[in-house]
Every structure is written in structure tokens, then in C-alpha cells.
Design a protein around this nucleic acid. Structure first.
Length: 205
DNA sequence: ATCAGGATTGGCT
DNA sequence: GCCAATCCTGATT
């Protein structure tokens, strides 16, 4: 089933973990692309690495709106990254979707990415938005209706691995310069579709 | 296997 | 101006 908005209005770290195994789906007319979420990061309030840290601006206003909506950021002049607004407080918290296991529309995604290797299709926050064709036009959309949806793992085809039985690894986040030490990255242990930052991190530890 | 460098744009310490 | 929650390529070990 589609995750209800109440799913997102809980503790952000808990939501980041609970999102693992769920399905991000993009419906465009008769074309559907989707993937299973295998890696996330939590960004909290009072978190120097969060885009909401310096308060509300025109660019981050949806972070301060209701939970269960998308918040898209354009980074490095080239890539879109997708957040989900989360938390029970006054806003400013989000979960970054960092990697998907490709499920539906693989041929389309391969064409969009100009690449065939399934492991490189959606294994990174910039990669998965390109594969699912998610851009800034999707900023601020509710995830329980409309073209972008997140489904719980129990009801979709392809969910042969019960996520509840999979071990979740918790580590530090990737690609940030502040609050590097906070352990708010989560991924499914042993999953081949997590992003490359994992290997980078392992080496450093 | 690892690393360095470049691409490229919008928001704002 | 400066920096950014990235990705890809090509060189080197």
C-alpha cells in the first residue's frame, strides 16, 4: 500500500530506517519506473549539515512544511537529489534517498542514464533521480498521491526479500563537510545497489 | 583498486 | 564571489 502521511511524521532517524525496503515509484502516463530504497540519510534540526540549518529560505521552504512531501535540491551544478520531509517537530528535517535497487522500467532507466549496468543505474542520489526522471519540478509534491509515490514493501511484486529480516547498517554520512561524525546513514547490509560512498567510508575506518 | 580533476548552476555563512 | 547532501573519466599503482 501507499505509505500514509502519518508514516513520515515520526522521528526522522526512525523514518530513515523504515524507508529501507520501500518502493519509490514514478508514474508518468503509461510509463512507470520504480526502485526499492536500499540507502538513506537523515538530516535533522540543529544539524549543521542540513539545508535547513540556517533557517527558512526561499529555496528550502518545503522542508518547513508538512511531512510526507518531496524536497528536491540541485547540487554541483548538475544533479538533483531527493529528500522526503519528515519528523514530528516544527519541520526542517528530512531523509535523503541515496540509492535504489532498480525494479520497474529498467530499459527506460538505462536509456535515461546512458548506461546498462544495473549496479550503476540508481546507486547514488544523483543517479536515481536521473533514472526516474525526477527534477526540481517535483519539489514539494505529496508522496501519497500524484506522480511520485512510496509504497510499503509488502504489496508490490518483486519484494521477495522481507526487509524486516534484513540487517540495517548505520554509518556516517557522505559528501558533507559539517557534522561529518553523525551516524545518520542507513543501508541494507550486503545489498549490491548501495552507493559507492560506502566503500570510500569503509576504507577510512 | 584508487585517485584527481572537471563539468556546471543556483542560492546565499 | 564562493560553495555545494555528485558523477564520470582517465591515469596511475
Amino acid at each position: 500500500m501507499i505509505l500514509p502521511r502519518s508514516f513520515y511524521g515520526e522521528d526522522t532517524v526512525m523514518v530513515a530506517k523504515n524507508l529501507l525496503g520501500c518502493y519509490l515509484v514514478h508514474l508518468q502516463g503509461d510509463m512507470t519506473t520504480s526502485g526499492r530504497i536500499v540507502e538513506t540519510e537523515a538530516y535533522l534540526r540543529q544539524d549543521p549539515a542540513a539545508h535547513s540549518f540556517h533557517g527558512r529560505t526561499t529555496g528550502n521552504s518545503v522542508l518547513f512544511g508538512p511531512a510526507g512531501h518531496t524536497c528536491l535540491f540541485f547540487v554541483y551544478g548538475m544533479h538533483w537529489c531527493m529528500n522526503v520531509v519528515t519528523g514530528r517537530g516544527d519541520g526542517g528535517e528530512a531523509v535523503l534517498i541515496r540509492a535504489l535497487e532498480p525494479i520497474e522500467g529498467i530499459t527506460v532507466m538505462q536509456k535515461r542514464r546512458g548506461i546498462n549496468d544495473l549496479r550503476l543505474l540508481c546507486s547514488g542520489p544523483g543517479r536515481l533521480t536521473q533514472a526516474l526522471a525526477i527534477t526540481g519540478e517535483y519539489n514539494g509534491l505529496p508522496l501519497d498521491s500524484g506522480p511520485l509515490q512510496i509504497w510499503s514493501p509488502d504489496s508490490l511484486p518483486g519484494s521477495s526479500d522481507p526487509p524486516g529480516l534484513q540487517e540495517i547498517v548505520q554509518t556516517i554520512r557522505v559528501g558533507i563537510s559539517r557534522a561529518k561524525e553523525l551516524p545518520y546513514r542507513f543501508y541494507l547490509k550486503g545489498n549490491p545497489y548501495v552507493s559507492r560512498g560506502i566503500k570510500r567510508m569503509r576504507r577510512l575506518s
